[in-house]
Design a protein around this nucleic acid. Sequence first.
DNA 1: TATTGTTATACTCTATAACTATA
DNA 2: TATAGTTATAGAGTATAACAATA
Lengths: 155, 155
Amino acid sequence: MAAEIPKAGVAFLLTQLGTQAATKFAERVSALDLTPPQVGMLRMIAAHPGLSQQTLAGNLGMLPSKVVTFVDDLEGRGLVTRTRSTRDRRVHELTLTEEGAELLDKIRAVAAAHEADFCEALDADERARLQSLLERLTESHGLTPGVHPGYRTIR
Amino acid sequence: MAAEIPKAGVAFLLTQLGTQAATKFAERVSALDLTPPQVGMLRMIAAHPGLSQQTLAGNLGMLPSKVVTFVDDLEGRGLVTRTRSTRDRRVHELTLTEEGAELLDKIRAVAAAHEADFCEALDADERARLQSLLERLTESHGLTPGVHPGYRTIR
DNA sequence: TATTGTTATACTCTATAACTATA
DNA sequence: TATAGTTATAGAGTATAACAATA
């Protein structure tokens, strides 16, 4: 009855699966009262302790004014600290508190569970081959390891 | 200097590449003055001529009130027609005009170019293996062929 | 004068709920 | 009373620009 839908190519399958993966991950971290951009911030602060809000905004492709709001929240929850730099008193150096580091451990566990569930249909060998092909694509598109473009606004 | 970023898994690579693919496709179709949801509508109308706006909204996971706005636009541009159903005068049957069908051909060409460019880094054999693995994943997640979840709001 | 962080504001977008016409 | 389509509206979210402190 229904006319045929043309077979989806790789690019379309990637948008489908990418949205699905992002949505499911967002659901999981919402159990920790976090959004994916906040998770990205915590990871970035852990990787570069003491970085400024401007640098953070630049690295993640977020608006500085947005960073303020998120850091307000994370600081109020005792996960992150702002410290005035002694070298340039304009900048706030960001670091994780011990509690923040513990939460990051939980995030890593959530991410591992997410990965395992999402790839459930593939065996270890297939998963490795898929990973390798996807890495080739990300490299060819110049995508930053560990940072996805979605922290910038999607239109 | 920078602490190590843990290697990204398949799920994260998919969100990265999915966002990238969606963004690039959106850029391409914007040259035709269309958004990705509108492209989805045109494809759905072509596959199910005469369907109602409610059905269209349901199939694409869009709000009916949003469909109104989009159809207003597409109808105003002579791409789609609304016809009152003779069996139930409440419903508007949607069909593509000849111009709409021609635009859909252009969309298909754009999508093909998008596919080719996006997968440029892979040879035909790798592309086929990737496609097969991605299809397995979409099936395992119960994703509808040809419809991506992004027409629903992303939060 | 330029830059960091912050705040305020204007703007867009979304979802929800009313409204009409048909059933 | 219920449904298809439409319109109006309130709420959320985003980007831009103004601002104070510091360089």
